[in-house]
Amino acid sequence: MKTYTAHVTVTLRRSILDVQGKTVEHALHSLHMPSLTNVRIGKHIEVDVMAPDSETAQQLIDDACQKLLTNPVMEDYSISITESSTGVTA
């Protein structure tokens, strides 16, 4: 078994107006940064997972995303998995 760290990024679905992102975008423009556009604000979730390989780790996290971590009605997510620096556990 290895320990992996999953980084899950959760954002509102593209079809849903991200009012928080829009508000921050307006604030950036009022700070004279007009070249910054399409601000989107979401959540970052970090979670360690023990699995024999990274594919299994990915599947476990994907399952967690679908059951609890995200709501498919309003959110999209992406997962990035890295092998944890704490190394191999028994």
Binding site: L12, I16, L17, V19, Q20, T23, N71, V73, M74
Partner: peptide, 11 residues
């Protein structure tokens, strides 16, 4: 119930 309740439009 279908759908979801998200942040109010004026935050």
């Amino acid at each position: 119930l279908p759908g979801a309740l998200i942040r109010n439009s004026d935050l």
